[in-house]
């Protein structure tokens, strides 16, 4: 006899579920190319690397696609039901991001939410880029919404949609979404430190 506590997430089931999803939703998986950067390099402790552990995480990348399709989940599958960027990054004309996503996570529905829920503009498509390319794109005023370093720091450390990554709520089964590997405080400190040190992109 085994005991399974009802409604308490079981890590094994979770992992199993994700694996099985990957195996059995071929139709979905085959329609896009894998975008997550294999994280097989030795993790360094510099502010740049710490910051990038967050910015390359699927919590961030899923809404910085290199196409017009928002991604979902750990496997970054295309958003269900064919939702796309739309003309202003807010979804389609009548069925928008905010048809389902509100200014906060909804723990009853498992739908994530944060203020101004939307896709990052196309110029900020980071999906498929490595951390150095992301950094370059991020500093490029032609791509970053014409933001200065100060404005970037503000965006990266104060914007509630960006910081949603650290409080991503639960999914449709009530299972907490994975957060980036470091804490919000560590991340903020790393961002501030990197910009204070001149926002220098290390050599690859």
């Amino acid at each position: 006899m085994k005991t399974i506590p009802h409604s308490i997430p079981i890590i094994l089931l979770l992992v199993g579920g994700i694996l099985m999803t990957a195996i059995y939703s071929r139709g979905v998986v085959s329609s896009y190319s894998s975008t997550t950067i294999p994280n097989n390099e030795v993790l360094k402790d510099t502010p740049f690397d710490k910051m990038m552990q967050v910015l390359t995480h699927e919590r961030c990348i899923n809404c910085h696609p290199n196409d017009n399709i928002p991604k979902q989940g750990k496997d970054s599958h295309p958003h269900y039901f064919g939702m796309k960027r739309g003309e202003d990054n807010l979804g389609f004309t009548a069925t928008q991001c905010t048809t389902c996503h509100q200014p906060e996570n909804n723990d009853y529905s498992g739908v994530p939410g944060a203020p101004h829920w939307s896709l990052a503009p196309k110029s900020m498509g980071w999906q498929g880029l490595d951390k150095y390319e992301i950094a370059k794109a991020m500093l490029d005023r032609a791509k970053n919404g014409n933001r200065s370093h100060d404005e970037l720091v503000h965006h990266l450390t104060e914007d509630s949609l960006v910081l949603w990554a650290f409080d991503p709520g639960v999914d449709h089964e009530g299972i907490p979404r994975e957060t980036p590997p470091i804490s919000e405080a560590e991340y903020k400190a790393a961002v501030i430190a990197w910009f204070e040190n001149g926002a220098i992109i290390p050599k690859e």
């Binding site: 009548a94 069925t95 928008q96 905010t98 048809t99 389902c100 996503h101 509100q102 906060e104 909804n106 009853y108 529905s109 739908v111």
Partner: peptide, 10 residues
């Protein structure tokens, strides 16, 4: 005036 899915709207 906007379509909203009310099961996910606090």
């Amino acid at each position: 005036g906007e379509a909203v899915r009310s099961c996910s709207y606090a």
